[in-house]
Amino acid sequence: MSTINRTQLIATLRQALEQNPAVCAAWEGGSAAFTYMDELSDVDAVVVVEDDAVAAVFDAVEAALAALSPIDLRHDITGTVGYQQRFYRLRDASPFLVVDLVLMRRGDPLLFREVELHGKGTTWLDRYNLLSTKHLDAQADLAQAMARLPALRAAFDMFQHIPTKERLRGRAVEALSFYHAMTLRPLVEALRIRHCPHLRNFGLRYLDRDLPADVVARIRELMFVSDLDDLERKHAQAQAWFWETVG
């Protein structure tokens, strides 16, 4: 049974961060920075620390969480540039109430403050007035989105034979996997460039939030395939939609 709620978890995080002098700023992002937080949302905490204090702040946060509830699972994200990220699941909290903790050094320029991408986060702490609101340069961002189209078209055109040949071989699992990766994912990227170019890199996440309802319904129909004959039909439909979109 869950005994730790969201309010308690956030209070614990905030106290641990506020009491640590190496923490320069902290805020809650994710769904809380937009309008779609619900009872299944996790806690997205973003923290700016002194350049030499990343490990120490992680340790301090983990100690505070462990005092609230034993940490059931920790997962480190590797290969990130400009920040470090860890996830925590607590034994006495809902399995959905995961802590997504991002730490970045004060000397790094990446702050995830662009409102169009990251919403309006709830500030927990800002010792040095680091958390100014930023906006994308809409014209430059749109130019980058449009510059992506030639490569997107070329890759799509090159690889549609792969789901087709696996279907013809009767390899349903491989055919479906390549259809999702090589047909639907670039189709969704093209649709995002058309409808919400600044969100073009979000892939299949947040479709209901970002794209028109009729577009989402059509994608959903293409995602679920019953057999190889159905795959053949939907593959053809998805290809036609892609070329219509990028045209």
Rank of each mutant, 00 (worst) to 15 (best):
S2G: 10
T3A: 14
T3I: 15
T3M: 13
I4D: 06
N5E: 15
N5C: 14
R6D: 07
R6C: 08
R6I: 07
I10S: 08
I10Y: 02
A11G: 10
A16Y: 03
L17A: 06
L17H: 06
E18S: 12
Q19K: 12
P21Y: 14
A22H: 09
A22M: 11
C24A: 11
C24W: 02
A26T: 06
A26L: 03
W27I: 05
E28P: 08
E28C: 12
G30P: 06
A32S: 10
A32T: 05
T35E: 06
Y36Q: 11
Y36F: 12
Y36N: 09
M37E: 02
M37T: 09
L40W: 14
L40M: 15
V43Q: 04
V43C: 02
A45V: 09
V47P: 03
V48Q: 04
V49K: 03
V49P: 00
E50W: 01
E50C: 10
D51T: 09
D51Q: 11
A53N: 04
V54L: 07
V54F: 07
V54K: 04
A55N: 10
A56V: 08
V61K: 03
E62V: 05
E62P: 00
A64P: 01
A64E: 00
L65Y: 05
L65H: 01
L65C: 00
A66W: 01
A67E: 07
A67Y: 02
L68T: 00
P70D: 07
I71A: 04
D72A: 14
D72W: 14
R74W: 07
H75S: 15
H75C: 13
D76Y: 13
I77D: 09
I77M: 10
T78P: 05
G79R: 08
T80K: 09
V81Y: 10
V81T: 08
V81D: 10
G82N: 11
G82M: 10
Y83F: 12
R86W: 09
R86I: 09
Y88H: 00
L90I: 09
L90F: 08
R91K: 10
